[in-house]
Computed example of a mutant assay.
Amino acid sequence: MVFIDAIHVKIRDGAVANRPIYAALAVTTEGRRDILGLWAGDGGEGAKHWMHILTEINNRGENDVLMLVYDGLKGLPDAVETVWPARWYRPVRSTCCGTPSAIPPARTGTRSRRCSELACTAPTEDASLERFAEFADTWGKKYPAIVRLCGNGWEEFTLFLRFDTEIRRIVCTTNAIESVNPRIRRAVKARGHFPNETTALKCVYMAIMSLDPTGKGQARWTMRWKTALNAFDITFDGRLSAARQ
């Protein structure tokens, strides 16, 4: 399983501007986390840029990815279909997954209630459509952007409903890369802005290398993934078991 996400840093290139640094984090067949790489971008990356990154990962030997999780990175779907054809799934980790960050701030209780009303907890696609219709009726006038975002991504979101609840929980609520990002953001914020993208990449790299010096965090993480790994193995017809052998 591979998560791809961006951390935005300030880089001085004539003028100071926000630039994304993309991190690819893998969860191995043993449930261990591994950062596959860091890449700087300009925010307008297309299929060619993602093709370069995914081909690089593939050439290192990561040639069987069960699931890729990302947030609306344009051009990435086309590149994935070329590098790993017919071997991947991409549930969108956004509003339709019910993440609190996707919901506008509100009074205590209201925000969590809105999250629970979203469609990701439904057992089937039909039930999900019913919940989405109820959600749109209740909140559509006040928060039309949320309803529009869900509607635009509905075809991709329905892929998500094909998976076991353990897999859904891992993708939506224990997002692997979001547990890494806060440490990176603190390191970046402490330094303000960077003279070039190389120094920014070095800062992010050093923050990642200092995440778990004792290895205890990795051990706890592996234990939490045991149930999900069993669900992955069943869903993907034993491909995890084959990869371990």
Rank of each mutant, 00 (worst) to 15 (best):
R185E: 09
Y205M: 15
Y89L: 09
T138F: 02
T28K: 05
P123M: 03
I146G: 11
G109Q: 00
C120M: 12
R107D: 14
P213G: 05
E30D: 14
A187V: 06
C115T: 08
T235H: 12
T214C: 12
R114F: 01
R162L: 07
A176I: 07
L161N: 01
T55A: 09
G151C: 11
A190G: 11
F132H: 04
A243R: 06
K226V: 15
P195W: 00
V16L: 08
R183L: 15
H193M: 09
N63W: 06
L25Q: 10
G43R: 11
N196Q: 12
G238H: 01
P104K: 02
M206H: 07
T124S: 06
A119C: 01
R169L: 15
G61Y: 11
G31Y: 04
E130W: 04
C120D: 14
L25C: 02
W154G: 00
D42C: 13
I57H: 01
A15Y: 13
D137E: 06
H52D: 14
A6L: 08
L73H: 13
L149E: 11
V188F: 06
R60P: 09
T199V: 08
K226I: 14
L118A: 02
R224L: 14
P105A: 02
P104N: 00
I184Y: 03
I4Q: 12
A127N: 00
S112N: 03
E56Y: 11
H49Y: 15
I21W: 01
D126L: 11
P91W: 04
R107A: 08
I21E: 07
G217S: 04
N59K: 11
G44V: 13
D64L: 09
D13T: 03
W84L: 13
T199G: 08
G140V: 01
A243N: 12
G61H: 09
E56R: 15
K48N: 13
R183Y: 10
R111V: 05
A242E: 15
L240K: 04
D34P: 14
A24C: 10
T138G: 10
W50Q: 00
G72E: 15
R19E: 05
C96R: 00
A136E: 05
G98M: 07
T29Y: 07
I184M: 05
M67W: 00
S210A: 15
E30G: 06
R168Y: 02
I35K: 01
I4Y: 12
R131L: 03
V27I: 07
V83I: 04
T198Y: 13
R19T: 04
D5L: 06
P123E: 11
R12Y: 05
A187S: 08
G217C: 10
W154Q: 01
V180I: 03
V171I: 13
T110K: 10
M209I: 06
F236G: 13
L118W: 02
G153V: 03
I208E: 15
E125M: 07
L66P: 05
L211H: 09
